[in-house]
């Protein structure tokens, strides 16, 4: 917790901003899927490539698994977004976010020769935005701010006092 106390104003400010940006991204991904009634991960999973493609396609091919995955995506993304924005169990939310991003990265790895139907807005080689966002979440876990700005300040207040 020492590190927290040592943040300068700008360090805290920008770390919180970073948390907000990632949180916003997750939350809106979740909410937009919630509002789009016919949404399903099916085409995305079927479009999977790379060494784990078979695994992702088998999820798409199994109606029960697909339904579960759809729910996990819709509500999981929303919860991760809320957690990051509100600073509520933010570390847990970050870990959840990293898991999501890892799945997205592994299902569509930007390897040489990989070819996807899903159009991308940029050019990627080995590193894509999923990987970068996952790294951002690792940074946020190592430099937590939710106990300074966020619900965790209240949730974990006793522990702080004890220390």
């Amino acid at each position: 917790m020492n590190r927290i106390k040592n943040y300068s104003f700008f360090q805290t400010f920008w770390l919180v901003i970073l948390r907000m940006l990632v949180g916003w991204h997750f939350l809106y991904e979740g909410v937009s899927k919630m509002l789009n009634h016919g949404w399903s991960a099916y085409p995305y999973l079927m479009d999977s490539g790379g060494f784990m493609a078979e695994f992702f396609r088998s999820i798409a091919a199994n109606p029960v698994m697909l339904t579960v995955v759809n729910y996990i995506n819709i509500y999981g993304l929303t919860l991760v977004g809320l957690g990051l924005i509100l600073g509520c169990f933010a570390s847990m939310a970050s870990v959840g976010g990293i898991l999501f991003l890892a799945m997205y990265y592994l299902s569509h790895p930007p390897f040489i020769g990989a070819d996807y139907l899903m159009p991308t807005e940029g050019s990627y080689l080995w590193i894509d935005k999923n990987l970068i966002e996952a790294a951002v979440l690792f940074v946020l876990i190592c430099f937590p701010t939710s106990r300074i700005i966020g619900f965790d300040r209240y949730i974990f207040r006793k522990k702080i006092k004890d220390k």
């Binding site: 907000m20 916003w24 939350l27 909410v31 924005i85 509100l86 966020g150 619900f151």
Partner: peptide, 20 residues
């Protein structure tokens, strides 16, 4: 100050809700 810092980011949700 505690309360403010705890709730400081809630308006972001409002902004997102408005945007949606």
């Amino acid at each position: 100050r505690n309360a403010l810092k705890t709730l400081a980011t809630v308006p972001v949700l409002g902004a997102l809700a408005y945007g949606v």
